[in-house]
């Protein structure tokens, strides 16, 4: 009786793992096929043909898209963290009237549907003259990275004990010194987590990237992959699409697996404590 229970439990575990991993596994298998082999269904890898990868990486625009994505996501993270560290210090360590209101506003902004600001941001970006440049994306991504970063860093800082600040206050250190000398060294784990989550958010974003860029050389990776298509329905370059997908996903999966504990903590802090 006991081993029946144990077997069915492990069967469930296997089902979960297979369902979770199979689509990506199949994308990898497909990416190593070319020609007619693509259209023969096989469950196991048969060949190790790098043709699709070579074709994608030597294409005119895909490497540029990768660079665009790296540039946009990195600057978005730097920008969000810079604004969020000081703001979350104020929101978590200093008592003042209106703090709860500001926190509620930030939470509200993080729930905004992106489409609700699309028209207004489009106008703003045209007005600033940054349409079809990476800056259009860096500016617009602030709307979802900043509230999230502020929220998570505030919950993190609030949990730090009062004592760590006390000595610095007694010594007459200014708030700026307290942030840079006392808090920043303690905050590396939280910064890495929020920075990584913001990076993933910016790397994956599609609606703004699709709307605020118009030429192939300014596209980010998601837009490039979404718009990879052949001359007709029958000529969709599935091999190239899968190779491109694997190229942009593998770094993310590696990062997520390395930082998995921190990411889980960051996700649940953003969610549960909301």
């Amino acid at each position: 009786m006991k081993w029946v229970k144990l077997t069915s439990f492990y069967a469930l575990v296997v089902v979960i793992v297979v369902i979770a991993v199979f689509p990506f596994y199949y994308a990898v298998v497909t990416s190593f096929k070319s020609g007619t082999a693509l259209f023969r269904i096989s469950y196991w890898p048969e060949s190790l043909n790098w043709a699709n990868y070579i074709s994608v990486l030597t294409s005119r625009n895909f490497p540029i898209s990768i660079w665009n994505s790296v540039f946009v996501a990195t600057l978005t993270v730097v920008f969000a963290l810079f604004l969020a560290v000081t703001a979350s210090y104020a929101l978590s360590r200093v008592q003042f009237r209106g703090r709860a209101l500001i926190l509620m506003t930030i939470l509200g902004v993080s729930m905004f549907p992106q489409i609700a600001v699309l028209a207004g941001v489009f106008e703003l970006i045209r007005f600033l003259g940054v349409f079809n440049t990476p800056w259009a994306l860096i500016i617009s991504y602030t709307i979802f990275t900043l509230p999230f970063t502020v929220w998570v860093l505030t919950t993190f800082m609030r949990d730090l004990p009062m004592e760590i600040e006390e000595a610095a206050i007694v010594d007459g250190a200014s708030p700026w010194v307290i942030i840079t000398q006392v808090f920043l060294p303690l905050m590396w784990p939280a910064l890495v987590t929020t920075g990584l989550l913001a990076f993933i958010g910016a790397w994956n974003e599609f609606l703004f990237a699709l709307t605020f860029t118009s030429s192939e050389t300014t596209r980010t990776v998601p837009v490039a992959i979404a718009l990879l298509s052949g001359a007709s329905e029958q000529e969709v370059p599935w091999g190239n699409i899968m190779a491109a997908s694997v190229i942009v996903t593998v770094p993310l999966i590696i990062l997520v697996l390395i930082f998995q504990r921190k990411i889980v903590a960051g996700l649940t802090a953003g969610g549960v404590k909301g």
């Binding site: 979960i16 793992v17 979770a20 991993v21 689509p23 990506f24 994308a27 993933i200 790397w203 994956n204 599609f206 990776v221 998601p222 837009v223 992959i225 979404a226 997908s245 942009v248 996903t249 993310l252 999966i253 990062l255 997520v256 697996l257 998995q260 990411i263 889980v264």
Partner: peptide, 11 residues
């Protein structure tokens, strides 16, 4: 199970 979460929606 973190893999589906990490994969970009478009991908």
């Amino acid at each position: 199970i973190l893999i589906p979460w990490a994969i970009p929606t478009i991908v």
